[in-house]
């Protein structure tokens, strides 16, 4: 890893904890009405407006192979930009956003969880042991790469 991740935002998908690099996250939004874009992949939910711009939204849960994910009061959209440009903003739907965790104290261990058996999210930066939980840090570039292809 070239850039050490110093803090992460954790969230849950299907009771499992995942996280994204805090520096890549731009906004966290409540679930809202998403305008469907026809002829796109199933996990591609559509577009929303954010500060006058249109940004696409994908369902991270569908990408992980979870069928018919629920929408609850906790469902949230995490808006990220993997390369820090406004043109690459994309929203990702998750079950529940948890907290910001500093990773400086704890060590990032190799992830043993293999997502490729169930869905499209297969690459992880590592796993952090926090209290009783294991948090898998998602490799965002890899996810973006999946979406673009």
């Amino acid at each position: 890893m070239e850039n050490q991740i110093t803090s992460i935002i954790s969230f849950s998908i299907n009771e499992e904890l995942f996280a994204l690099d805090t520096l890549k996250v731009r906004h966290i939004l409540e679930m809202e009405n998403i305008t469907k874009v026809p002829n796109t992949k199933a996990y591609f939910l559509g577009v929303i407006k954010l500060h006058g711009n249109i940004i696409p939204v994908v369902d991270l849960r569908l990408m992980m192979g979870i069928s018919q994910p629920e929408i609850t009061a906790d469902t949230a959209i995490i808006v990220v930009s993997h390369d820090d440009s406004n043109a690459s903003l994309i929203g990702m739907v998750v079950d529940n956003v948890k907290e910001v965790v500093s990773t400086e104290a704890s060590e990032l261990k190799e992830t043993v969880f293999d997502g490729s058996t169930t869905g499209l999210i297969a690459s992880f930066e590592g796993t952090i042991h926090e209290g009783d939980n294991f948090i898998h840090v998602i490799n965002l570039n890899e996810v973006i790469h999946q979406i673009e292809n």
Binding site: V37, P38, N39, V47, N53, I54
Partner: peptide, 27 residues
């Protein structure tokens, strides 16, 4: 007309999106 951005470039039949007066989006 607002661009749909890089992730929807492949959706050729939609050239952009527009925010309507009531806040909804029309493609």
């Amino acid at each position: 007309v607002k661009p749909l951005g890089r992730f929807l470039k492949r959706q050729e039949s939609i050239s952009g999106a527009s925010i309507m007066g009531d806040g909804s989006i029309a493609l």
